[in-house]
Amino acid sequence: MDTLPDHDLILRARRGETEAFGELVHRTQTAVFNVCYRLLGERREAEDLAQETFLRAWERLHTFDVERPFLPWIRRVAANLCLNHLPARAPDFPELDDERDRANPESGPPQLVEGRQQTEQVRVALLSLPPRYRLALELRHFQELSYEEIAQTLNRPLSDVKSDLFRARKLLKSALGTPKSPDFGD
C-alpha cells in the first residue's frame, strides 16, 4: 500500500477502502497539521482540526479531481475548516510557550541556535497577527495560491485579498522588528 501513488490510493479510498485512505492520511498529516497550527497557534486544537480535516476529506472525496495532486487539496480543506472555526474559538492568543519548551532554541551549536531563534521569532510574529492576515499569508506563502485563487477560496473581492495580504506583510515585518524603511504608500 505504501508504494502506491496518491492517485491509486484515492481511487481505492473512493471504493470504500479505508486502509488506502489511512495511507493518504499518513502521507499528508504533517502538512495538514502545520496548516492548522499556523492558523490556530495551539497544538491540541490544531491536532483536532487536522483530524476533522481528514474526516471531511473522506466525506468529500468524490468531489476531488483525481488528476490533480492531493496535497494542495487537503491543505485547502484544512485552511477552510480553520477559517470556519476561527470565529467560534476563544479570543485569539499566540501561545507558543509549550512549543518553545519542546524544541529549546538555546541548545546546540551556535549556528543552529541562531537558526532556531529566527524560526521561533517568525512563528511568534506570525501568530501575533489577526486571524484574517494569518490566513492571507497562509494561502499565499504556504499554499502558493494566486490572488484570484485566494479570493475564490475565501469568497471575497480581489481588492480585499490584496489589501489583507499586503497589510499582513507590513505587520509581520513590523513584528519581526525589521529596520523601518521609508513608506511610499500604496
Partner: peptide, 26 residues
C-alpha cells in the same frame, strides 16, 4: 526587505507531529 520577509516565511520549517492520525481516523 520584502524579499527577506518572503524568505523568512519560506524557510519556516514544519513542526513535527507527535501523534499518528491514521489509526485514529480509521
Amino acid at each position: 526587505e520584502l524579499r527577506a520577509l518572503f524568505a523568512d516565511l519560506g524557510s519556516l520549517p514544519d513542526l513535527p507531529l507527535e501523534v499518528d492520525f491514521a489509526p485514529l481516523i480509521l
